[in-house]
Design a protein around this nucleic acid. Structure first.
Length: 478
RNA sequence: GGCGCGUUGGAGAAGUGGCUGAACUCACCAGCCUUUCACGCUGGCAUUCAGGGGUUCGAAUCCCCUACGCGUCACCA
């Protein structure tokens, strides 16, 4: 059996989408698992929408996620070039072959004509299929059209009525009626091949063995099968991965929020977590474990455990997963990660480090750090709710706060020192932990829940603590 | 509308004829740990697999019908 060769073939019409990243990942994992090659090819035949920035973004995103490719753009390879617009000659050869065997023909129909035909069949509740009007034009008719300056498209002659059966790796046997396809366009009037044609030629000439892609391509597949048959080529194996859905169960798109990989990067997600999460979208590991590094996934992955039903993108789960990875990072790395989000606050390096340590177990993403900033920046400390207000109403509170203010004035505001004075207050007044800690916590932050209070106080600094204490004193009417 | 695919708890999702009297995870609730908070740990959480029929000794798992959801029908990929 020949070598496994798979490819990820995005069109550079925007930043790498979550769905694209998942397709790329499954291809990557399959290739690595089977000892095959992973190829990245760019499908840029849509001149209107393709652009280089998108291509750069796609490459960056793939690399950020940790997927490298054996062949393709940037790295080159034996089947270069890997950009469709640079492979026009290859398509031309295939078109010639199709003309030679009488399976392709020029079509001069105008868009308006086609549109009218389409509407007519639609109104009769039939499938819009090209009529085949230009199938048998004579030489004279053709030269007349050419003389009139009409640029033709090239269509494939699709005849017969045997059903088209696809043995899909994930969906099993799927069959389509040949009559439902019609003579479709393979080369546009500007001479550029259409997607369905270019993929077939590329996949064949690049020896692609397995085509793993999103389910939205399933209904394209019969056209490609017909093309393989017309060209007399062996087909790769197809596998259509179910779609990724948003919360409302429709295909994930912009209106579901962030859809491109860079968005997640910018929000402070870790590539390890995103890869792990993406792998779980439509694929399930064998055991109960669900945290896997990319290289572990490479060993665990198997096409037989890819599911047919669509996967819903659950952002909460992603956050949780990201948190799992985040919690295990050294505090220096966390400090680096939260850096961009605390820039405004002008914290010193030590403060950022202390903040990182303090929030480590609280953060699910780096960007969440901003939620915690008001706890020690600014002076907002009004009790958050009735329960918090009730804490301040305890009769031991004035005593605790007074003692705290006095002792705090005499120390350097460092976590260890703060720990010491709080312990002293507890002992000297014979109070329990909650009485001291809750009083101080609510008095200073207005919240009953939150990160380690010693660190928080240290981050506030002397002046801020004094202000907050005074505000609370005023509020409770002392 | 045609064609195609899917439908398991509040959410994600295992499970393709008996070991599932439906894993695991998120969320939620209870308890433990913790001098506070959090992390962590333990337990609880679908008499049931969209609905209806059928096949079978036995069905979430196979077949049929209905409903619903989604995808796709371009000189876009």
């Amino acid at each position: 059996m020949s070598k496994i060769r798979v490819r990820f073939a995005p069109s550079p019409t925007g930043p790498l989408h979550i769905g694209g990243a998942r397709s790329a990942l499954f291809n990557y994992l399959f290739a690595k698992k089977e000892g095959g090659d992973f190829i990245v090819r760019i499908e840029d035949t849509d001149l209107e929408r393709s652009n280089r920035e998108s291509e750069e973004n796609i490459k960056d995103s793939l690399r950020w996620l940790g997927m490298d490719w054996n062949e393709g753009i940037d790295v080159g390879g034996p089947f270069a070039p890997y950009r469709q617009m640079e492979r026009l000659d290859t398509y031309k050869a295939a078109v010639e072959q199709l003309f030679a065997s009488g399976q392709a023909y020029y079509c001069y129909c105008s868009e308006a004509e086609l549109e009218a035909e389409r509407e007519a069949s639609l109104s009769q509740k039939a499938m819009p299929i090209y009529s085949g009007k230009c199938r048998n034009l004579t030489k004279e008719e053709r030269s007349a059209k050419e003389a009139a300056g009409i640029k033709p498209v090239i269509r494939l002659r699709v005849e017969g009525d045997e059903p088209i059966i696809i043995d899909d790796l994930v969906r099993g046997q799927v069959s389509f009626e040949r009559a439902g396809i019609g003579d479709f366009v393979i080369v546009k009037s500007d001479g550029i091949p259409v997607y369905n044609f270019a993929v077939v030629v590329d996949d064949h000439t690049m020896n692609i063995s397995h085509v793993l892609r999103g389910e939205e391509h399933l209904s394209n597949t019969p056209r490609q099968v017909v093309l393989y048959q017309a060209l007399g080529w062996d087909m790769p194996q197809f596998g259509h991965i179910s779609l990724i859905l948003g919360k409302d169960k429709s295909k994930m798109s912009k209106r579901h929020g962030s859809v491109s990989v860079v968005n997640y990067k910018d929000q402070g997600f870790l590539p390890e977590a995103l890869v792990n999460f993406l792998a779980l979208l439509g694929w399930a590991p064998e055991g109960e474990r669900e945290m896997f590094s990319l290289s572990e996934l490479t060993k665990e992955f198997s096409l037989s455990r890819v599911s047919k039903s669509p996967a819903v993108f659950d952002i909460e789960k992603l956050k949780w997963l990201n948190g799992q990875y985040l919690h295990n990072l050294p505090k220096e790395t966390i400090a680096e990660g939260i850096g961009p989000f605390v820039k405004e606050a002008n914290l010193s390096e030590e403060q950022v480090l202390l903040l990182a340590e303090t929030l480590q177990k609280h953060l699910n993403t780096f960007s969440e750090v901003t939620d915690y900033l008001p706890l020690f920046l600014g002076t907002e400390n009004e009790p958050q709710n009735a329960e918090a207000a009730a804490v301040l109403a305890e009769n031991t509170v004035p005593l605790v706060l007074k003692a705290f203010a006095e002792k705090f004035a005499k120390i350097e505001p460092e976590p260890e020192n703060i720990k010491t004075i709080l312990k002293e207050i507890r002992k000297e007044n014979n109070l329990n932990g909650a009485q001291v800690f809750m009083a101080v916590r609510v008095a200073l932050t207005g919240c009953q829940h939150g990160p380690d209070i010693h660190n928080l106080i240290a981050l506030m600094g002397k002046e801020n603590v004094a202000v907050r204490l005074a505000q609370t004193a005023k509020r409770v009417g002392q």
